[in-house]
């Protein structure tokens, strides 16, 4: 597991004055928030409010337009040195993102590899595990997500729910300290949503991985989150404990949103 000892007391993820634009379209405007170690934070809000962009910024799939993101106290994409904003080089970025796992809406399993090969690819070629170690580990994870019998299947032979469970195992195989869940059930048929959420709830209960979650499943959000943040138009409208946000939202926009989705 990559070491993360730099600043044990600092927040696990820190967004400072974050700005993200796509062309003329400002998606995130001067965003500030932190996530503590082991904390589970769910982002809710209407589509287009910038939630997914936040996850993609943490995974360095998108380039920051302005501001800073720190992970484990280390600068992720840009660093401030002597008043200057400097790009963190790719090697350093990759070192930081090794601690971060992500599960995608469309799974993004590699279709040219079996289930097992999907899972051991990064442990062997990024973390440097031996193949035997990686296989043992992968089999354990597959058991955990209830896919032990499918290890030699091709992803295309699996249902969406099964593919997503494999994708979760693939992300966990890297021993991430942070897990990003990007609308992981949105592409699934309704009857398959439960199996995926069940696996995630188990993982939330059994580990202390920090999680940043974007989801439309409010019941799931309520069960696993320590904190819920309501987004609209690129900024935080309201945040707090899930019980509070879901039962007594203060902000009118939160109320409207919850009424529409619940």
């Amino acid at each position: 597991m990559p070491e993360n000892t730099a600043h044990p007391e600092s927040p696990h993820i820190e967004f400072r004055d974050v700005v993200k634009r796509f062309g003329d379209n400002t998606v995130l405007n001067d965003l500030n928030f932190t996530v503590s170690k082991g904390e589970r934070v769910t982002l809710i809000g209407p589509s287009g409010s910038g939630k997914t962009t936040i996850l993609r910024l943490v995974m360095t799939l998108e380039e920051l337009t302005g501001g800073y993101i720190h992970v484990g106290g280390e600068p992720l994409q840009y660093d401030e040195k002597g008043g200057k904003r400097l790009r963190v080089d790719d090697k350093q970025r990759r070192r930081t993102t090794t601690q971060i796992g992500m599960v995608f809406q469309h799974f993004n399993l590699f279709p040219n590899m079996s289930v097992l090969e999907n899972i051991i690819e990064a442990p062997v070629h990024v973390m440097g595990l031996s193949k035997a170690e990686a296989v043992t580990k992968a089999e354990g994870l597959l058991e955990k997500v209830g896919m032990g019998e499918k290890r030699d299947f091709n992803p295309s032979q699996l249902s969406g729910g099964q593919q997503q469970r494999v994708a979760i195992a693939r992300a966990l195989a890297m021993d991430p300290e942070i897990l990003l869940l990007d609308e992981v059930t949105s592409a699934l048929d309704p009857e398959l949503v439960g199996e995926v959420l069940g696996v995630l709830k188990d993982i939330a209960a059994e580990t202390d991985i920090s999680m940043l979650i974007v989801t439309h499943e409010m019941q799931f959000a309520k069960e696993v989150s320590d904190r819920v943040m309501m987004f609209d138009q690129g900024s935080i409208v309201e945040e707090g404990k899930p019980d509070l946000i879901f039962s007594e939202p203060e902000n009118q926009r939160t109320r409207d949103f919850l009424r529409a989705v619940l």
Binding site: R94, F107, N108
Partner: peptide, 15 residues
């Protein structure tokens, strides 16, 4: 090749 494949490569920190 779908963009998601490139993103998964990046998310797994593969070179």
């Amino acid at each position: 090749v779908p963009k998601g494949q490139y993103e998964a490569i990046s998310a797994l920190s593969l070179s």
